[in-house]
């Protein structure tokens, strides 16, 4: 590793497949390391918070690994963070999963479950689908989505969705069986997607690349 190479930490809290996230980083030349270590997080130039699975389980693991304060202080001091799927949800205040559970509270808002019934029609949960992302009230020009066209397909696999209190943070929305939900957020140094860019073919990989470029993590 050269001296000026920026280091990205993929936060491993022992849930889900980190292999693809790492491969996506490797493909675009991002110097990313999978780690469970607080020291690695504190010395990182940027963070990726991935994740598949249960919110409560994830928060418990982050707590056990003593990573919560490290992540919060890094993000509050301006370190770029990229949250993916459950990683997006963990950034929020709390989840309604199994009653109620607290998140990292870096963005204020609540995680809700897709309800079984919409307009009288049965909505299948989990939402597992290539679905379209479209613009909210924000242009994508200055965001990692800048190479994508409006209504691009991305791969989703989740049962819960985020409801940000501040609608200005919503970067894209997505419609599932008539239910519109927030599919990505952007606020200062925080960027996070409900979909999996590392599972969304070359279009998804362009999101990694542009996130890396915009945060000067790759030349």
């Amino acid at each position: 590793m050269t001296k000026n190479e920026k280091k990205v930490i993929i936060i491993d809290y022992q849930l889900g497949n980190l292999f693809s996230v790492k491969q996506a980083c490797d493909t675009i030349g991002l110097n990313a390391v999978i780690s469970t270590s607080k020291d690695d997080i504190l010395s990182a130039d940027a963070l990726i918070l991935p994740g598949v699975g249960a919110f409560i389980e994830a928060m418990k693991n982050l707590e056990k690994l003593d990573l919560i304060n490290a992540i919060k202080s890094k993000v509050n001091s301006g370190t770029p963070i990229f949250g993916i799927c459950l990683g997006l949800q963990l950034l929020f205040t709390k989840s309604e999963e199994f009653g109620s559970a607290n998140g990292l509270d870096l963005i204020s808002g609540v995680i809700k479950k897709f309800s079984g019934d919409l307009d009288g029609e049965k909505i299948k949960v989990p939402h597992i689908m290539w679905n379209r992302i479209y613009m909210s009230n924000k242009s994508w020009t200055e965001t990692p989505l800048r190479d994508l066209k409006d209504y691009e397909f991305m791969y989703f696999i989740h049962s819960y969705y985020v409801n940000p209190d501040n609608l200005d943070f919503i970067l894209t929305n997505t419609n599932y069986s008539g239910k519109e939900f927030c599919s990505s957020v952007m606020h200062k140094n925080i960027f996070a997607t409900q979909f999996h860019p590392e599972k969304s073919s070359d279009k998804g990989i362009s999101i990694y690349k542009n996130w890396g470029l915009m945060n000067k993590l790759i030349p």
Partner: peptide, 8 residues
């Protein structure tokens, strides 16, 4: 499904 998430 509890351990890895239903969607897995």
């Amino acid at each position: 499904s509890r351990k890895f998430g239903s969607s897995t």
